[in-house]
Write a protein that binds this DNA or RNA. Structure first.
Length: 231
DNA sequence: CCCTGATTCGC
DNA sequence: GCGAATCAGG
């Protein structure tokens, strides 16, 4: 499958959000973990906490003269004046602090968020719309703090007339994406939010799901877009 | 063993 | 540009 803008966007978000290549590959579907990593590198995405490259040595003891298929053994004589390995003073500029997500900081007044609502930087994966999703322990137990009396989720979109555009998002309306980004009629749910969440009650149920072991993922997870998720 | 990301290299 | 194969650390 080709790397569409959307897929790339998701890849970026998840990668920067801390998701593993496997998770990303799994989420995107139809791509291998290696493909994701390869693409990530090609995109210039930085290498996050990688297990194999924890420390960084100044010198390169054994670069990699491994050529299993003996293809191009000699291409660089590499004079190697032995001593004095010129180190390039590359300024290791790294990205600024991780930006969690749609910083939805609803200063909840009368809606006691059970989870103290402060620890959200533990992104585990990204949902369909590229929206970040958390792990189970984060917001699982106290799921339904929302018995809002006035709710109109089911058919939130009154009409095409007042589609909720990106610019109209607020802490008060559901940010669930409707349709594909980029399409002319792409908009957001716009229903009243489940207090404390960025989505309405209905979409909260979709957005916040427990991460299951890789082997036991639900096959037909709710897909917000008509997503090209062919599996 | 499993997992992870990094790198190489044929396509 | 892509990604399987491979490498290598945890």
């Amino acid at each position: 499958m080709a790397w569409t803008d959307e897929r790339i966007a998701t890849l970026k978000k998840m990668w920067e959000g801390g998701a593993t290549a496997s998770q990303i590959a799994d989420e995107l579907g139809d791509v291998s973990r290696n493909a994701v990593i390869g693409k990530a590198h090609r995109l210039g995405l930085k290498s996050r906490p990688s297990p194999v490259k924890a420390n960084e040595k100044k010198a390169k003891p054994a670069p990699k003269p491994k050529t299993k298929v003996a293809a191009k053994p000699v291409a660089k004589p590499t004079p190697a004046p032995a001593a004095a390995a010129p180190e390039k003073p590359e300024p290791a500029e790294q990205a600024p602090p991780p930006r969690p997500a749609p910083s939805n900081a609803p200063s909840n007044q009368s809606q006691p968020m059970p989870n103290s609502g402060k620890d959200m930087p533990k992104i585990v994966s990204v949902g369909p719309g590229g929206f970040l999703r958390q792990g189970p322990g984060d917001q699982q137990p106290p799921i339904p703090p929302a018995p809002p009396r006035r709710l109109v989720p089911a058919k939130p979109s009154p009409d095409i007339a007042d589609k909720t555009s990106l610019l109209e998002l607020s802490d008060k309306v559901c940010r669930w994406p409707m349709g594909h980004p980029g399409e002319p009629d792409f908009h957001f749910c716009g229903a009243d939010v489940n207090p404390g969440f960025p989505y309405c009650v209905e979409h909260c149920g979709r957005a916040f799901q427990a991460q299951l072991p890789r082997g036991a993922r639900r096959p037909p997870p709710p897909l917000p877009f008509g997503g090209p998720r062919v599996r």
